[in-house]
Amino acid sequence: MQKKPNNRLKLIQILILCVSGIFLNSEAKSQNTKHNHIYLETFDELQQFLSYQGDNFHLISAHRGGPENNMPENCIATFENTINHTPSILEVDPRYTKDSVVILLHDPSLERTTTGKGKISDFTFSELNRLKLKDLNGNVTNYGIPTLNEALQWAKGKAILLLDKKDVSIKKRLEIVEKNNAEAYTIVSAYSFKDAKTCYNLNKNIMMQVFIGSPEKVLEFDNTEIPWSNIIAFVGHQQPEKKEVIDMIHKRGAICIMGTSRNLDLLISKGEVKDIESLKKDYEDLLKLGIDALETDIPVQLSKILTLTTEESTKFKYLH
Rank of each mutant, 00 (worst) to 15 (best):
K132G: 07
P227K: 07
G66F: 06
E277N: 15
N69T: 15
R112W: 00
Y185F: 14
T141P: 09
E127W: 13
K281S: 09
Q31Y: 15
L59A: 04
N139C: 10
L279N: 06
L306H: 03
I187V: 14
D164E: 12
G66D: 00
W228G: 12
K4I: 10
L287H: 06
S61D: 05
D297K: 00
R130F: 13
G157Q: 05
I76K: 09
P299C: 02
R252F: 02
I16T: 15
V245K: 00
K243L: 00
Q209D: 13
H58I: 00
A190L: 04
G259N: 00
L148M: 12
F79E: 02
H58A: 02
F49H: 06
L148W: 11
G290R: 08
C256L: 04
G138M: 07
S121P: 05
E175W: 04
E27G: 12
T314W: 10
D285F: 01
I268K: 06
K98P: 03
D44G: 14
D122W: 03
G253C: 03
H63V: 04
T224Q: 01
N56A: 14
I246M: 00
N6C: 07
L59Q: 12
N32S: 13
I187D: 00
K158S: 05
K158E: 01
D297N: 02
T307V: 04
E68G: 15
L17C: 14
K10R: 12
P94D: 08
F23Q: 12
K281T: 01
I83G: 08
K194I: 10
E111H: 14
V273D: 02
A62M: 03
V210A: 11
L15S: 15
Q31C: 13
K165G: 11
F49G: 02
D292K: 01
S30L: 00
K288F: 11
T113W: 00
V188W: 05
P5S: 11
E312P: 04
K280E: 02
S30W: 11
K197R: 14
E220D: 13
T186V: 09
L302E: 01
H250W: 01
N223Q: 13
T260L: 01
G290H: 04
L279Q: 03
D164K: 03
N70R: 15
H85G: 07
N84Q: 14
E127D: 14
F123G: 11
D99H: 11
S126V: 13
G271P: 05
K132E: 06
C75I: 07
K10S: 10
K281F: 03
S61L: 06
K281G: 01
E68I: 10
S20A: 14
F123K: 15
I89G: 05
M207F: 09
H58F: 09
I60S: 06
G118P: 10
F79G: 03
L59M: 13
S278F: 00
E41C: 05
I145A: 04
K281V: 04
N56M: 04
D195I: 07
D297T: 08
A77I: 09
A184V: 02
N84H: 14
